[in-house]
Design a protein around this nucleic acid. Structure first.
Length: 536
RNA sequence: GCGCCCGUAGCUCAGCGGAUCAGAGUAUUGGCCUCCGAAGCCAAGGGUCGUGGGUUCGAAUCCCGCCGGGCGCGCCA
């Protein structure tokens, strides 16, 4: 069992006995940065003191007697912190746990898995994927993996807007190209797409007069291309949901009827409006335009109804912050339908856009897409692993600058390499040891006495909690930070201590520690969609 | 103008249900390869956490104002 859970149990018992009025308080431990503060510390005495208006140190004294097989000593410090020192065996206990659990270390199994959907990328098939889609792909896939690690049943979904005005513009652009008309020339469509890929598609068009055939071909071409990009990025979707199916299956109509029946709509200027202001929106929204067609808002609501009806009680939409106004709107639409959907449904993870810098200047164009940098450009410049790790190592809502030169310079030294290098180093040690990880399962770990190796073991013990926290917060960057710390701890140990020493007992114990490190690094990197190479 | 988000070391960013949070990487400087990978390690310098108030015994963290930046504010998606 996890050491922190075990300790929390001890404290909970003590609270029940001595301060029952605070029984419901949450007990947390953190690892102090300053080693003189022990191995683990808790501030519950201060929490309780605040609530009960007692003196923190006085409350802390009540926990003096806590002991047991895992605790070496307990100190009360500062304003009322309780600092704990653990016994050596408690620190190394995680090693056999990791070796036994293998790829499942840190993962949880739950009795009743939640059915969760993560929707991400959802790019219109009007051009190659851009950097923003890349950030979404990296984030969404990692969030899905994190939730899976906590035992949930996750579906990765891509919503395909194959029915809107943008597709029309795409078809007309290709048609114009096929007729030899270039961007800006007479006959070029309004809001046309100017990228080089339009010409590529146009070359394959036999009869430019058949606009429907042009449209179908263009969409198929770009879908295939996007699929290839996603594959190169290591992202797979379980479901591609087509916007057009919402129309063909009558779901859009059904949603309109539902909204009208709710009494929350009204006619004005020949259009149908929904009173979204009743649900916190700053203005009412048009549902059906005066020309009889629907705004994108309506299929969006219809789409989310299908999510609910398909049994997803938790849904996470990953989008750019430029879509943040849809959050209130979609939720309002769902509320107006009064289907029993909770107010905060669905959840959103909104990310800021990415600025790409190269040679000290912002890169705004790519040869292929014309007006933006593509996912493929990034992969070509710095490699898939670096792109994925980099895009996920900042919290989603912070704007950030992707410095291509920095990433390249480091790869020869790039952001992931530090973590991957740690993994490769352990593998290398193993290759030279002639020992298999499997033979280390029952090894005596008492020889692990050094400060660095015990610190490393404790870092491993933090993994399940780091993972659970990152999953709960939908924050892959927290996992990326953890992995960096684990790698740092390992590099430090590696440089300070020789692993393959003469003494058989010591060598084997150290190898067991290394095997656990390797496993944990591999598990963490896998969740972020980043490779864990044995050599590099 | 209104709404949401952001402002932490030269640079890129963590920390933000208050205390043991002044941090990481990178850059700069100085050390470390006869020995498991130096894509590494050890050490140093560098920040009144945008700013002014407030709450608190205690604020980077919570509240309010202001300044600066991003995004949105369409019968576009």
């Amino acid at each position: 069992m996890d050491i922190k859970d075990e300790l929390a149990g001890l404290f909970r018992d003590a609270i029940r006995e001595k301060i029952p009025e605070a029984s419901d308080i949450e007990i947390t431990f953190e690892r102090p940065r300053d080693p003189s503060h022990g191995d683990l510390a808790t501030n519950i005495a201060m929490q309780i003191a605040k609530r009960l208006k007692r003196k923190p140190r006085e409350v802390a004294e009540l926990f003096r007697g806590i002991g047991g097989a895992r605790i070496e000593s307990l100190e009360i410090a500062g304003p009322g912190f309780i600092n704990l020192r653990l016994k050596q065996s408690a620190k190394t206990g995680v090693i056999p746990e990791v070796l036994a659990a293998g790829a499942k270390f840190g993962h949880k199994r739950v009795a009743a898995p939640e059915k969760i959907q993560v929707e991400f990328v959802s790019a219109n098939p009007t051009g190659p994927l851009h950097v923003g889609h890349g950030r979404q792909a990296a984030l969404g896939d990692a969030i899905a993996a994190l939730l899976e690690s906590q035992g949930h049943a996750v579906t990765r979904e891509f919503y395909y807007n194959d029915a809107g005005a943008q597709i029309e513009a795409l078809a007309r652009s290709v048609q114009a190209r096929a007729r030899g008309i270039g961007p800006g020339e007479p006959g070029w469509p309004q809001d046309g797409y100017a990228g080089e890929y339009i010409e590529e598609i146009a070359k394959e068009i036999a009869n430019a007069d058949d606009l429907e055939a042009v449209r179908q071909h263009a969409v198929a071409f770009l879908r295939k291309e996007q699929d290839e990009d996603l594959k190169a990025f290591g992202v797979k979707f379980d479901v591609y949901y087509l916007e057009s199916s919402l129309y063909s299956e009558g779901k859009v109509e059904e949603t309109v009827k539902g909204l009208v029946a709710s009494g929350k709509t009204y006619e004005k200027d020949g259009a149908l409006w929904l009173r979204t202001t009743d649900y916190g929106d700053d203005k009412d929204r048009v549902v059906r335009k005066s020309d009889g067609s629907y705004t994108y808002f309506l299929p969006d609501v219809a789409y989310h109804v299908t999510k609910w009806r398909r049994g997803f009680r938790k849904v996470i939409d990953v989008q750019g912050t430029d879509h943040h106004s849809t959050v209130t709107r979609v939720r309002a639409g769902l509320q107006a339908l009064a289907l029993g959907i909770p107010k905060g449904y669905p959840d959103y993870v909104l990310h800021s856009l990415v600025k790409v810098v190269r040679g000290g200047a912002e890169v705004k164009i790519s040869k292929r897409a014309g007006s933006y940098v593509t996912v493929r450009d990034l992969i070509e410049w710095v490699g898939r692993d670096a792109v994925r790790f980099f895009l996920v190592s900042r919290k989603a809502d912070s704007e950030f600058t992707f410095d291509v030169d920095l990433a390249r310079k480091q790869t020869d030294e790039n952001p992931v390499y530090y973590v991957q290098y740690a993994h490769a180093r352990v593998c290398s040690v193993f290759a030279q040891s002639g020992t298999s990880a499997a033979s280390l399962s029952g090894v005596n770990l008492d020889p692990l006495k050094g400060e660095k190796e015990l610190a490393l073991a404790q870092r491993l013990a933090d993994f399940p909690e780091a993972l659970a926290g990152a999953a709960h917060e939908l924050a892959p960057h927290a996992l990326a930070f953890y992995l960096r710390e684990l790698a740092a701890e390992f590099h430090s140990y590696y440089n300070a201590e020789r692993i393959l020493v003469e003494d058989e007992a010591v060598r084997v114990a150290r190898l067991a520690l290394c095997a656990a490190v390797r496993q944990t690094l591999a598990n963490g990197l896998a969740l972020l969609g980043v490779g864990a190479p044995e050599k590099m």
